[in-house]
Write a protein that binds this DNA or RNA. Sequence first.
DNA 1: GGCTGATGTCATCGTACGATGACATGTGCG
DNA 2: CGCACATGTCATCGTACGATGACATCAGCC
Lengths: 186, 186
Amino acid sequence: MTGTQEARRRDSARSREALLRAASELFSERGFDRTTTRDIGRRAGVDPALIARYFGGKTQLYLAAVEAERGDAPVSDLLAPDRLRQVLEGAARRGLVPILQVGVQPLSDPEADAAARAALHDRLVEPLHRRFVAEGRAQPRLRAEIVVAAVIGIVLGRSSGAFEELGEVASDDLAALLQETLRGGE
Amino acid sequence: MTGTQEARRRDSARSREALLRAASELFSERGFDRTTTRDIGRRAGVDPALIARYFGGKTQLYLAAVEAERGDAPVSDLLAPDRLRQVLEGAARRGLVPILQVGVQPLSDPEADAAARAALHDRLVEPLHRRFVAEGRAQPRLRAEIVVAAVIGIVLGRSSGAFEELGEVASDDLAALLQETLRGGE
DNA sequence: GGCTGATGTCATCGTACGATGACATGTGCG
DNA sequence: CGCACATGTCATCGTACGATGACATCAGCC
């Protein structure tokens, strides 16, 4: 090694991270299918061929992106005090959106689809399910899935451009309004 | 003409309708991008080249499908007594789902995207908006968009296969539960 | 019955994509 | 320095797609 982390002209770790970041962003913005490896390479400032070298392929890069997201976010359920606002705010944040997208349409790649489903379940459905069970509500799993699906609709709707006001409203205001609208879930 | 509507061995109207029906189904099941003209032709039992002849191309076929749906369904808002159940039940029905999909991600084709957005607005958002205005609620448009986006999440979530119970529950039960969950919108 | 347009079939084009491998260049070590 | 490997670049392959046009076949009219 050359000492520590000085910017080398050739740095595989740097390239890998740039690809992972660009991929997370693009998967968020356009979904798995519409994101091309050439796009990822362009945004990362890295040759797309390196995707194959460092990850194995587009699918494995997607898996790495989902896995990365899986690691760092909190696991409180969606109806916890500040969690809703947090999710809305962080929607732009890379990582979460690709997981949400699978709630609305299966991915074309079976492996990527399975990973995204698992993440959706672990990260969003299950925590809420546990809350409903603890509260002794009827049909806790179904209720949890309903809330998650609804929130997915909202989050993706915000960035779809299909709604006039939903895309513009501040996350805080929306979170408050949503808490109110979903109060049947409490 | 040969008299009236006897099934001729060659019948352009018949082929046209078969293509339109198959297209509506496939656009519902897989969305615009993942539906190929070859798939449409195969399901319709018609050569895909006829899509170009009768509609102009895949995009125009999509527009025709959206337009067809636009004509025949009722325009009551989503919170009207039986409307929610009706939408859930009719989700499998060809036509509506393609309109819902645009609420969650823009279509790759600009023309198709604009048409779907307009239909989404006219068919779902605007009626609900009118209701909220009549009820004198604050932020009527935003509230309408929230409810529509949430319902889109539910409907698409049901067919995504990503949720265990949401995909299985009967439309009536789900409609009832949803009315309850969304009661903040009333 | 033969002609003309409508309808259907087929081969093919151009493009975009993910993947791959050959090759070039930099980097660190002996 | 010079070798060996790590890293980066580039050309190209195979596949899938939407579109197009040439060709074949059928229907109705004179």
